[in-house]
């Protein structure tokens, strides 16, 4: 072995970096899994749970574009004919009342910071 004084520390740094998530997990894991609060007001969202789980941001973005930029209607209808208001505050948050207990549960876990609240006024909630 030649140049062990440089190669061994180099390899240790390499292993330390690529295993970062492992030892970081040991140091900081709090084991909290996201558990968004289920609404009591309605049983069915405007789309299926599977769709909402993966694509709610697309739906909200489409509403925003349609209403703000194209003068679209505030009124929407689900597949089974239930009417709802296409609005973050008056629609979504009519059932999902708490940002902290619903939105933030998953967003914090997945490190997502949606820019809804750049324009919308964030609801005041007790911590």
């Amino acid at each position: 072995m030649y140049d062990t004084g440089k190669i061994i520390p180099g390899l240790l740094v390499f292993v330390g970096l690529v295993t970062f998530p492992i030892w970081y997990g040991f140091v900081s894991a709090d084991g909290h899994l996201p558990n968004p609060e289920k609404p009591t007001k309605a049983k069915q969202c405007v789309e299926s749970t599977e769709f909402m789980r993966t694509s709610h941001m697309v739906l909200l973005n489409d509403w925003r574009d349609n209403i703000v930029r194209e003068g679209g209607s505030r009124h929407g209808k689900t597949a089974d004919g239930t009417e709802f208001v296409r609005s973050l505050h008056k629609g979504c948050m009519d059932c999902h009342t708490s940002k902290r207990k619903f939105c933030d549960e998953c967003h914090t876990y997945a490190a997502v910071k949606p820019y809804c609240w750049d324009c919308h006024i964030q609801p005041k909630e007790a911590n």
Partner: peptide, 18 residues
């Protein structure tokens, strides 16, 4: 991708993400 491996997500990942 560290945002998917670490919990809580370290600050530099948030900065990178932003």
């Amino acid at each position: 991708h560290l945002r998917l491996f670490t919990d809580p997500v370290p600050g530099f990942v948030h900065i990178l993400e932003f």
